[in-house]
Design a binder for these strands. Structure first.
Length: 623
DNA sequence: ATAGGGTTAG
């Protein structure tokens, strides 16, 4: 028989150990009490449910400690309380140990809905959505009644794995259990449909929702922006204001993001004013979104002004500003800001480096780019190791500045498998430098890797066309037809009085079409008189010269600028957004136009901005 | 006990 004092000393020590998070001591004390036949299950035992709960909490950062505690729970004979196991399960999942968590779950006798919900939730959080849906299906099979807490997670899982089929099945269950009017479940249903591309179903659920609240509006607006439907998102934003719902910081972030996508500076500025009026400008998310909007609308001065005024900045703010300068061809400012950032102790991430590498690319700074790339490779931080995008950037940098062989070598020495983006960068460089042999090899690789991407076919046929090899051009076009490769339709857009006007090549659908064509004809007349000559080398078809010129003269950006001349206030620049890259002829056209009309033309193409002014472009013809 | 919306790049 042990002296009583000793075991109570042990009891005290146990609590101390728990408080100090000393698991080895705890295990030691447990061992002591256990081997001395001190009951571990009586009410006076230190091994109470509460003690375990706090023990679990203090050891929640180490998976192996949690497993030791699990063993402890089992040997104490303490009945396995759901709450204790749930806590253990949650801690394990937070550490990413879903395997052990699942083991625990499967050992339990008839777990309640709550625990099923927990397991599903944790699978989703750990990016294991397929497991999440299969757990839900098992739950359903076993007849465990799901509740309103079950569905948000299950629907998130369906959306994450792009599984419309299961999503619809789950939707049916939601209706069966009468949960479809719950605002949260319904919001998640909408999100699921929108994310898998079923916008109609999302809209329907929203339209027929009786208790449409702020979050429901925000959710739908956000998901529209995220899925590339910025125009629709802005439409919803207006609808929300009309419906008398006051936007909050979350709404504003999505709306600004939509403006950034569309290049809607006017609307963006209006939202900016709302931000100031409602004093939302202390929110970092909001300020980053404003910054992004100004950058993507080509108003780099406003962006910098805001950046300097921001009360807080994080790596996203810095990356956005750095990339903003890069996109606008101000590489020196971009690189300078990067060094300021590093001096301030802000850790750059992969996105920051992407901005830096593209800044080097736009300025032809080969050596600098290589040294930044080396910086990434040598970094101890696994979060700044170069990824495929960075390799593509480097190939672009090397190739664009004429080092084609070096770029090719660079790809061959890559430690990871190059993708179409990397090879595509090389093909693009081959086009610029008119290297037919290399481009044929690269194109072969690309046609195997990504046969469905039209732009690679187009690049190759451009190279042939430039060399006058019309037979080869025709072969590429036949191949495209045979494989059903569709070209991405080019468009340009201009914002006037808060409305976006979209133009396609040869477009006559605009209500002001005849005025636009008139203005365009006049413009061509004017620039021709000061030396403009159409450059038809990039026109694909082997047709008569006049026909080529006709195609060329109605490229979407030319129509957009002609429209801008009529409809954008004379003192402000004409801002054009293009979904593809600008062609050589349009680039020359814009330079001449900026001179004869004495107007600034700011054009955002797929990659960067061109600021045309007084007959020059900010890209210095290197793009 | 547990639930819905947000920022950079591609």
């Amino acid at each position: 028989m042990q002296p009583k004092v000793k075991s109570s000393a042990t009891t005290v020590s146990f609590y101390c150990a728990v408080r100090l998070k000393l698991l080895p001591s705890i295990l030691h004390f447990y061992d002591f009490l256990h081997t001395h036949k001190h009951s571990t299950t009586t009410p006076s035992s230190p091994f109470t449910k509460q003690a375990f709960a706090s023990l679990l909490e203090s050891c929640s950062s180490e998976s192996y400690q949690l497993k030791q505690i699990h063993a402890l729970i089992l040997t104490t004979g303490l009945s396995i309380k759901n709450s204790l196991i749930t806590q253990l399960l949650t801690s394990l999942t937070l550490l990413g140990d879903m395997t052990y968590a699942r083991l625990l779950f499967d050992e339990m006798h008839k777990p309640r809905s709550f625990l099923w919900n927990t397991l599903i939730k944790e699978y989703v959080k750990n990016d294991l959505s397929i497991e999440a849906t299969s757990v839900y299906q098992k739950m359903h099979r076993l007849g465990v009644r799901p509740d309103t807490f079950t569905y948000p997670f299950v629907l998130k899982a369906c959306a994450q794995v792009d599984d419309l089929w299961t999503g619809q099945e789950v939707h049916a269950h939601v209706v069966k259990f009468g949960l479809h009017c719950n605002a949260i479940v319904r919001t998640e249903l909408m999100m699921m449909y929108a994310k898998v591309g079923e916008l109609g179903s999302a809209d329907y659920l929203f339209e027929t929702m009786s208790n449409r609240d702020l979050v429901a509006w925000n959710a739908l607006i956000a998901v529209y922006v995220q899925t590339g439907n910025a125009g629709k998102a802005l439409g919803m934003f207006h609808g929300m204001v009309l419906a008398g719902i006051k936007p909050d910081s979350v709404t504003v972030v999505s709306a600004l993001s939509a403006c950034a996508d569309l290049g809607c500076l006017e609307i963006g500025k209006q939202i900016d004013q709302f931000v100031m009026k409602e004093i939302l400008d202390s929110n970092l998310f909001v300020n980053n979104a404003r910054l992004h909007m100004y950058v993507k609308c080509g108003n780099i001065e406003a962006a910098r002004c805001l950046f300097d005024k921001m009360p807080q900045r994080n790596v996203i703010s810095w990356s956005t500003m750095i990339r903003g300068y890069a996109m606008n061809g101000e590489s020196d400012k971009s690189l300078h800001l990067f060094s300021v950032m590093q001096n301030m102790g802000v850790q750059p991430n992969q996105v920051t480096y992407l901005g830096i590498l593209s800044a080097c690319g736009h300025a032809g700074l080969v050596r600098e780019g290589q040294s930044y790339f080396e910086e990434m490779v040598k970094s101890n931080d696994c979060n700044v190791q170069p990824r495929l995008e960075h390799y593509a950037c480097m190939v672009d940098l090397l190739g664009r500045s004429g080092h084609l062989e070096e770029a090719f070598d660079f790809i061959k020495r890559m430690p990871i498998e190059p993708d179409a983006g990397v090879w595509g960068a090389l093909l693009g460089a081959c086009t610029i430098h008119k290297n037919i042999e290399l481009s044929q090899n690269v194109a072969d690789i690309l046609f195997n890797l990504a046969p469905e991407i039209a732009s690679y076919h187009v690049l190759l046929s451009n190279i042939y066309a430039a060399a006058g090899r019309w037979g080869d051009v025709e072969k590429v076009r036949q191949k495209m037809r045979k494989k059903g490769v569709k070209k991405v339709v080019a468009y340009s857009s201009v914002e006037a009085s808060g409305e976006v006007h979209v133009f396609h090549g040869g477009d006559r659908s605009h209500p002001l079409s005849s005025n636009i064509y008139e203005a365009l004809a006049e413009l061509i007349k004017q620039i021709t008189s000061i030396g403009y000559m159409p450059n038809t080398t990039e026109v694909l078809h082997d047709v008569q010269m006049e026909e080529k010129e006709a195609t060329l003269s109605t490229h979407s950006e030319k129509l957009a600028v002609a429209f801008g001349l009529i409809n954008v206030r004379p003192q402000s620049p004409i801002r054009v957004i293009k979904n593809l890259r600008i062609c050589n002829d349009c680039h020359t056209f814009m330079k001449f136009s900026s001179k004869v009309t004495n107007r600034e033309i700011i054009m955002r193409d797929k990659n960067r901005f061109h600021h045309f002014k007084d007959g020059y472009c900010s890209c210095k013809d290197f793009w």
